[in-house]
């Protein structure tokens, strides 16, 4: 038995849990990352291995893929994005409902990688905002799990009122 020590949760006999609303929201969000895999290149093989049973991404609540961006929270951009591909990626990103997060998976999605040429977008962050970058060509599965954990930390620290909404981002582009 816990003694009544002035803590209101104890006074109420542990029948209620008190927390802040944004903490509760962040807790719920960080353990239910429905991800949309946008797979364009060889990093996809590594992505598949991470999301297989061996590495068990469901430990992070991030296992379930939604193949409609409208139902997804987390956009995995896996692989090289060419200039012709970028409008499609942007379209997918715009279709996702807020709150949403983006992980740039591998060197190509993060910076263009070694494709320093006329056809490749030099990092998806030139067009859409990115939350976590995963280096590697392709990244090890451990790096991907580390990225998911880092994203969870980021979500946990999110101040509810501070997060930029989609309309804010669009406003910036129009300027």
């Amino acid at each position: 038995m816990v003694e009544n020590s002035g803590n209101i949760e104890n006074i109420l006999g542990e029948s209620v849990v008190l927390t802040r609303k944004d903490k509760l929201l962040n807790w719920a969000r960080k353990w239910s990352l429905f991800q949309y895999p946008f797979v364009t290149a060889c990093c996809g093989m590594e992505f598949m291995s991470v999301y297989g049973s061996h590495y068990d991404a469901s430990r992070f609540g991030a296992e379930y893929p939604r193949f409609s961006p409208r139902q997804a929270d987390l956009l995995f951009v896996v692989g090289t994005i060419s200039h012709k591909q970028m409008p499609i990626l942007k379209n997918v990103y715009d279709q996702m409902s807020d709150p949403k997060w983006v992980i740039a998976f591998g060197a190509c999605a993060s910076t263009g990688g070694f494709y320093n040429n006329y056809a490749t977008v030099q990092g998806i962050d030139t067009v859409i905002p990115v939350d976590v970058y995963i280096p590697g060509c392709p990244p090890r599965p451990e790096a991907i799990m580390d990225a998911i954990i880092k994203l969870q930390d980021k979500i946990a620290k999110t101040k509810y009122e501070n997060r930029e909404s989609v309309s804010d981002l669009k406003g910036e582009e129009n300027e």
């Binding site: 200039h83 970028m86 409008p87 499609i88 942007k90 379209n91 977008v121 030099q122 030139t126 067009v127």
Partner: peptide, 8 residues
Amino acid sequence: RQPIVGPL
């Protein structure tokens, strides 16, 4: 570099 094409 070329400008990104499409709806952007």
